[in-house]
């Protein structure tokens, strides 16, 4: 089922390529590489779809399982894109994959890319349990099968005051939750990352403050919101290990740490879960962690952010937007709540 975005002002659905002439990314790439017939076809395509393919020309090919490849052929490109694509230009693939936090692989921004090769992502199964009628252990393939892959180009705002713009490929989280048939007691969704110290060296550190597994949570209505997705890929390919392969959460209106990576368990629960960062420092990180320029982190201001990549001559500091610029879509979820208290 395709869920329409409520407020299209920020997320244009203009000039959608008609269903009949959707082409796979492969054929775009082939066309752009100059394969005769392919070239003429791709030139005839609507501009935006072509732009998506050319953006990923330099992206190294991954090693996806077959099922991912076939889903990719049927992907809905540019399903959600930023309104201002000049302002929100895509972060280069190399930066998005070599500068991120994934503490399971180390605390440095380069550690995940350096250390994540050891992660084994195939096969991958996920437990869905708790307040559901249709729980169990599922192969990732089966979990993703009924949903069409959609491309979502989202801003990613880290709680550390830097940000990127990343083209994710994923399926609506709501689809997966609905198929699990939550009971009336299901009020929250709790997520867990894999625990495997032999694959994840950061989990071996005796100085780590995180009590593994890394845990995150969403309120039910947040999880069902159409902007919340389970990411399976980025930049037209499957997720690289360091970005949370083989699948992760992406909630664009919240600080990046909410978007938990390499998920092995999704539990529908009655009580509000305690997420890992909240457990470490409850005065610094809340459960909601909505991007909010008016509520500072105790150690730094959240009023602005550094859009990466930047340079010494241009730190690229921009104003942070309420709910990371997705206020029209999500603000109603928090009506009447004191966001200073529920930070």
């Amino acid at each position: 089922m395709l869920i329409k975005i409520a407020k299209p002002s920020d997320l244009r659905e203009s000039d959608v390529t008609p269903e009949s002439i959707y082409l796979s990314r492969r054929r775009f790439m082939g066309g752009l590489a100059g394969v005769g017939a392919g070239l003429s076809i791709s030139l005839a395509l609507a501009g935006r779809a072509q732009a998506a393919a050319s953006d990923y020309q330099d992206v190294p090919a991954g090693n996806p399982p077959g099922w991912f490849d076939s889903k990719l052929k049927d992907a809905e490109w540019n399903s959600v894109v930023p309104a201002d694509r000049q302002m929100d230009k895509l972060t280069p693939f190399d930066d998005a994959t070599h500068y991120n936090n994934f503490y399971e692989f180390g605390t440095g921004k380069g550690d995940p890319a350096r250390n994540a090769d050891s992660l084994e992502t195939q096969p991958w199964s996920v437990v869905i349990d708790g307040e559901v009628n249709n729980g169990g252990r599922f192969d990732l393939e089966d979990l993703a099968k009924p949903s069409r892959l959609q491309e979502r180009i989202y801003r990613l705002r880290c709680v550390e005051a830097w940000s990127m713009v990343i083209p994710w490929l994923g399926i609506p989280l709501g689809d997966v939750i609905k198929r699990a048939e939550p009971t009336s007691k299901a009020k929250y969704v709790r997520f867990e990352t894999l625990v495997a110290p032999e694959q994840m060296p950061g989990q071996d550190s005796s100085f780590a403050l995180i009590d593994w597994p890394y845990t995150e949570g969403l309120r039910m209505d947040e999880a069902m919101h159409p902007l919340a997705i389970l990411g399976l890929g980025m930049y037209g390919r499957e997720l690289p290990n360091q970005n949370g392969a083989p699948f992760r959460l992406v909630v664009p209106w919240k600080y990046g740490f909410k978007s938990i990576k390499s998920i092995v368990r999704i539990s529908l629960v009655e009580e509000q879960p305690v997420n890992s960062w909240q457990a470490i420092a409850p005065d610094e990180y809340g459960f909601y962690a909505n991007v909010n320029p008016e509520v500072d982190h105790p150690r730094w201001s959240q009023a602005t952010e550094r859009r990466l990549p930047n340079s010494l001559f241009n730190p690229n500091i921009i104003d942070t937007r309420m709910f990371n610029g997705y206020a029209e879509e999500v603000a109603s979820l928090y009506q009447g709540m004191d966001l200073r208290k529920h930070f």
């Binding site: 921004k109 380069g110 830097w162 550094r306 930047n310 010494l312």
Partner: peptide, 15 residues
Amino acid sequence: QVAINAAGPEPGRYL
């Protein structure tokens, strides 16, 4: 490292 673009996407923070 900054000059040869080997300092990552946020060279100021690197320094």
